[in-house]
Design a protein around this nucleic acid. Structure first.
Ligand SMILES: [Mn+2]
Ligand SMILES: [Mn+2]
Ligand SMILES: [Mn+2]
Ligand SMILES: [Mn+2]
Lengths: 221, 221
DNA sequence: AATAATATTTAGATAAGTCTAAAAAATAAT
DNA sequence: ATTATTTTTTAGACTTATCTAAATATTATT
């Protein structure tokens, strides 16, 4: 068993290193977890002694196989609870993160597996992030941001990169919720903002580069 | 907000004082929480400084109004989660306590109120204990143990006093689950064991005094 | 290559919660 | 009313997780 703090660090390390094989840096971890670098160093020593990370002084850190597996289990719990909160308790997608941040630490494999079953083994959480199965396995999503889509293409919104409350509220307000079919009608070279058509709503909307880079889509075929 | 340890102490104090207005004693609290008397003293000082208990050195302790209210909220969460686990996730009644012991500390009024609604505002948990509402109010159950029932009387099992796994398994095995209609057919004066008829199962069973004193019943009318 | 800037680690302190062992108070037994 | 026993509290130590401030290592700049 790991403590709540250990689990939060493992999860943070997973998110910080999943796209950066060279490892995570002390200051980045501190910024991500809103704590101090010295606290991070202490925890890295502890996780290292438990063989959950590979850590050498001043050299950055990566998760060990064991640490990655453990991180994925916490992430699995987080995302399943988020799905539960939206699907069974009618929370909005911008309300669930904080509560899931607590629920992800409940220690019971049986519990989370039964929640999984109750929900019908969902593959993606309310923000479009994949839910690992009991073995930590999940399908990699073909990583495409709305920013990278050319003019004329029709795509479906399938997730967000930024899951902050402020971004989710914005996205919801302009109608880019998950599952929405949209078409890129124009790309303005001045600031690379996009004119998007939303056929289901019969509306069009202008989205900034900052927005389009945080919306994940898959190509409609 | 209170810490997890504080919440567990408040809950323990509630259970230890609900039937004992003179207050709880340090050693009893320590035994109940499987900790040491010195740890209890430390926590009582802390709870006292937070105005959650009335505590004077060597004089025992009782919950303040504020402390009682807080304890009832934790108990509410505990019992609602137990009901959820049994009703929605098909856990057995002897499996839910440990998990609820963790879930009761999730901080979100909105969450527990929505769970309450999802479950249809249940009045009793899987062990027959009353579930306080959002204001801490609940109906006192007419407190009758099977031990006190005279020969010939027909009653319905409505709860247990001891909620330990070992007792619940025994009770389940002999068929005295909640809702079961039973009739006291004989009382043997030697050890005050009872011969109980269970019409729905067409069986009869002999229960010891230790058992009958831990089974709550209500008189059928 | 030496110096400046940045990043990371260490040293020492604090808070919560727990423990053991010793002291003090309350209660029971002579 | 002493003495003995039990209960409770205090003193001091330990663990986890955090912090500030100082020291050290790494990297960038002249
Ligand atoms: Mn968390
Ligand atoms: Mn999510
Ligand atoms: Mn608990
Ligand atoms: Mn219960």
């Amino acid at each position: 068993m790991n403590t709540l703090a250990e689990e939060n660090y493992l999860k943070a390390l997973y998110h910080l290193t999943v796209q950066a094989p060279e490892g995570a840096y002390t200051n980045d971890i501190a910024a991500y977890l809103q704590t101090k670098a010295s606290s991070v160093t202490d925890m890295l020593k502890k996780l290292s002694s438990k063989k959950l990370v590979h850590y050498k002084k001043y050299q950055g850190v990566i998760l060990s196989k064991k640490g990655k597996q453990k991180a994925l289990q916490v992430i699995r719990k987080h995302r399943l609870w988020e799905y539960f909160l939206v699907e069974k308790l009618n929370f909005r997608w911008d309300e669930v993160h904080e509560i899931a941040e607590q629920l992800e630490h409940i220690q019971s494999d049986e519990l989370i597996n039964r929640i999984d079953k109750l929900l019908g083994f969902p593959k993606y959480d309310p923000h479009g992030d994949p839910i690992p199965d009991a073995d930590g396995y999940f399908e990699e999503i073909p990583f495409l941001t709305l920013f990278a889509i050319p003019i004329g293409e029709t795509v479906t919104v399938c997730g967000v990169i930024d899951s902050s409350v402020s971004f989710l509220k914005l996205i919801e307000n302009i109608g880019l919720t998950i599952g929405t079919l949209i078409k890129v009608e124009e790309i303005f070279e001045f600031d690379h903002s996009l004119k998007i058509a939303i056929p289901s709503k019969k509306t069009k909307v202008l989205v900034s580069q900052q927005i389009s880079k945080n919306v994940l889509v898959k190509i409609k075929k």
